[in-house]
Nucleic acid binder design. Structure first.
Length: 426
DNA sequence: TCTGGGGTCCTCGGGCCC
DNA sequence: TCTGGGGCCCGAGGACCC
């Protein structure tokens, strides 16, 4: 692609972000097996309880919020005390040595490493650090794309000095500035495009920099497993392997027509481009959300009839949370959906589209209720979620900003009214 | 004692409209 | 009046990502 000939794109990935933030607060846990996760978010009660425990066990000393960093390690909760359905969000290296890792059930992890310290996730704190390191970056290089709490793409192309040593000089400056401001380290990959930059940022973790040029494709990229490509997940990896394609080089060697035949008219050509290190996607600095949702997994599977009251309360709360999120972000939504996860992990979704966007909890609940009526409710439910899509931005007075709501389409009306008699009362 | 929560994007089939 | 096709929206499911 001639257009990307002179682009320098960086991918920056914070090193073990959640764990590193926790270690800033609790440096006494450094080097110990620590697991972060569990079903609930951390509340302020966590630190309050910890300090209360410290005062109880060591009444001879003064314990205040500033003393969290010197609380005795034996006061922290252990994995062995956990009951519930949570999973590990992240684990420190010391914990990984016991075989525990991200996405593992906490009960299973407790058997592997019962003594590991368990910290509940504290998203508010991670978001604070996320905002801090991103502010450092945009001060230096303004064209930054947010890719989640611990990742960004940065366009170095037009930043003064952005091409020096292939981007290494600027990458080093950003790393140092982030460390000075937050105490956190990160890894950076700089390449001609986002696809290659993303792979490069993994090359020298932690606290490393990797520079990739177009000419490095065969030596640095092709030997890697296909799974390293952002967009090739476990399913695609298995399918590729069944055709003897294991490395990105194997993929690059396949004819585009063959890939199209076996992987479809969109994914096939994309696989070919990716294997050849081609990617013209721009670094996008602003984007509107597409949907806003809340979901929760129950302590035990619930049944629509037997556990009606409990389920109803959870349903209402999810709608209230989505309504709060909509309000806070300034949106109304025209399509309201529900999501169920059944005991066998099968996922069922149902959507309900309205003539007019809604934003209040009661309206959300009514629309979600319409969707729920079309869902199979004979079996127990493991998870319930509520989703708002078809978002429309509201101004300060709660009025739609741009396009007026469309009238109900004949299609939607016909569909819902044929489906089920219960829908008549709307 | 397996398997969270919050997203995006793609595909496919059906219905509607022109 | 019948048929066909393209474009679009909707709803459902699935893959993938952090």
């Amino acid at each position: 692609m001639p257009a990307e000939h002179n682009r320098r794109i960086a991918h920056l990935d914070m090193d073990a972000f959640y764990a590193s933030v926790e270690l800033l607060r609790y440096p006494q846990l450094k080097g110990l097996p620590v697991v972060i996760g569990g079903g609930k978010r951390r509340s302020v009660a966590f630190d309050t309880d910890a300090l209360a425990l410290a005062r109880q066990r060591h009444p001879d000393q003064d314990w205040g919020p500033a003393d969290l960093g010197r609380m005795p390690v034996d006061l922290f909760p252990r994995l062995s005390g956990y009951t519930g359905r949570g999973v590990i969000t992240t684990a420190t290296y010391a914990a990984r040595q016991f075989g525990v890792g991200s996405a593992m059930g906490l009960m299973k992890a407790a058997r592997l490493c019962p003594n590991a310290i368990l910290l509940p996730v504290d998203f508010d704190e991670y978001r604070r650090f996320s905002r801090a390191f991103k502010a450092v970056i945009t001060d230096i290089a303004p064209v930054m794309e947010d890719r989640g709490v611990d990742e960004v793409y940065i366009d170095f192309t037009d930043v003064p000095g952005g091409h020096r040593e292939g981007g290494r000089v600027l990458a080093r400056l950003i790393q140092k500035s982030i460390f000075d401001a937050t105490g956190l380290t990160c890894s950076v990959g700089v390449a001609p495009n986002k696809l290659l930059a993303k792979m490069a940022s993994e090359f020298n973790k932690p606290n490393g920099i990797a520079i990739v040029h177009e000419t490095d494709l065969q030596t640095l990229i092709w030997p890697l497993p296909c799974r390293k490509v952002n967009g090739i997940g476990p399913k695609a990896e298995t399918r590729l392997a069944s055709h003897g394609i294991h490395t990105i080089g194997d993929l690059a060697a396949r004819e585009p027509t063959w890939l199209r035949e076996h992987f479809g008219p969109t994914y096939g050509p994309w696989l070919h481009e990716a294997a050849w290190g081609r990617d013209t996607r721009p670094v996008v600095t602003e984007s509107e959300p597409v949907s806003i949702s809340r979901e929760t997994t129950f302590e035990r599977d619930l049944h629509a009839v037997r556990d009606k009251a409990e389920l109803g309360a959870i349903f209402t709360r999810l709608c209230e949370q989505v309504a709060d999120d909509l309000h806070r972000k300034g949106y109304a939504a025209r399509t309201i959906g529900i999501k169920l996860r059944l005991p066998d992990f099968k996922v069922v979704t149902r959507d309900h589209t309205l003539a007019t966007p809604v934003r209040h909890a009661a309206d959300l609940r009514h629309a979600a209720g319409q969707a729920l009526k079309r869902a199979p409710l004979a079996r127990p439910i493991r998870l319930l979620g509520v989703r708002a899509a078809g978002l429309c931005k509201l101004d300060a007075h709660g009025q739609p900003v741009a396009d007026a709501p469309r009238p109900t389409s004949a299609a939607a009306t016909a569909h819902t009214s044929n489906e089920n008699d219960l829908f008549g009362f709307d």
